[in-house]
Design a protein around this nucleic acid. Structure first.
Lengths: 186, 186
DNA sequence: TATTAAAGAATGAATGTTCATTCCGAAATT
DNA sequence: AATTTCGGAATGAACATTCATTCTTTAATA
């Protein structure tokens, strides 16, 4: 039988991605997780702790996906294409996780504590970018600006796809990744 | 003395941008607006209605800012630069409004009703983009993809600036708008 | 048997909303 | 001009409900 902590996290993800923070009570989480309400407090300090732990776990998973097929024999452009497409495919395939992360990021829950988490888990991606800058393959621009053009566009595209507002088929993904690369390349 | 409806909207903006939906009660709004709690319900059906009306008003204001200095004698590139910079400057100068809109967009409050609102108020911007596509100045790509590369990057940059995570000085803005144009141009 | 885990009813604080009442300016009446 | 009447805007205490969290009891485990 599934571990209760995991069941609680999965229930939280499902409920909050569909109904938002304000629309999700601890009782609902307990019901969906098929767990007593009090049990949640054996695994998490309180609601805020639960939300924050879930966010961090999702971000770590996300950061690992990005470099899943990293291949240093490829050109920077090739590696970037892989990384970017990984991001889009993950976001499309996991709409609830994407919605949750976006919601959390834009809430006051997400304080400056999270910056360190981001720095820590995305350090390899940062190294890759910095290397590309050093080798004058992409523009010499503050890395946070590069990150925005890379991450935000991919996630936003996937969100709009999940909303049914655009159709992100392979052709459109190819178009988009090339637009992104055009923005970055020297 | 300031009109009460406006006072309520301003209080809501301030509180929710700082404390989020869940952290803002109607009583708090009433206190900040210096209004009785019941008075809110003379102007808005309920909390959801208040949040939605505020969002629509902000979006309309935003859409008007974009084309404030529209000048059809300029090149497409020139017009795009103006539009994009308007967006960034507005987002930087109005961090609370930006935070509120982002929070609302990523919440389940924001349903498909809002799509029509967006379509309506951003139609002039859409016309501009479509014209640029027709004249083969920018890539022939679904307009929603263009929109994401334009809007999301600008707003995300401004948000990170307001967080203190990057410093969006004039130089960086110039860099960023050029990156954006590189993504779009044919 | 002793210890830990789980459950879910109980609790008290907080929330959105309502509604009986007050207030205020303008019109009507004297 | 002075007084009364009137309408609706504004109020905020009161209400039912919901919520996060705690507590007590029961079950499982070693």
């Amino acid at each position: 039988m599934k571990d209760k902590r995991t069941a609680i996290l999965e229930a939280t993800l499902k409920l909050i991605s569909e109904r938002g923070f304000h629309g999700t009570s601890m009782q609902m989480v307990a019901d969906i997780a098929k767990v007593g309400a009090g049990t949640i407090y054996r695994y998490f300090e309180n609601k805020e702790d639960l939300l924050s732990k879930l966010y961090v776990e999702l971000k770590i998973e996300f950061s690992e996906v990005l470099l899943a097929n990293y291949d240093s024999t490829l050109s920077f452009r090739g590696r970037f294409h892989n990384l970017w497409k990984n991001m889009v495919h993950y976001s499309i395939d996991n709409p609830q996780k994407t919605a949750y992360m976006e919601q959390y990021t834009n809430s006051p829950f997400c304080d400056h504590t999270m910056e360190e988490i981001h720095k820590k888990y995305f350090s390899k991606v940062a190294n890759f970018i910095n290397e590309a800058i050093t080798q004058e393959v992409i523009k010499d621009v503050p890395i946070d600006i590069i990150a925005i053009f890379t991450f935000e566009t991919a996630v936003a595209l996937a969100k709009k796809h999940s909303n049914g507002m655009i159709n992100l088929n392979d052709e459109n993904i190819e178009i988009a990744v090339n637009m992104c690369w055009d923005a970055l390349k020297k």
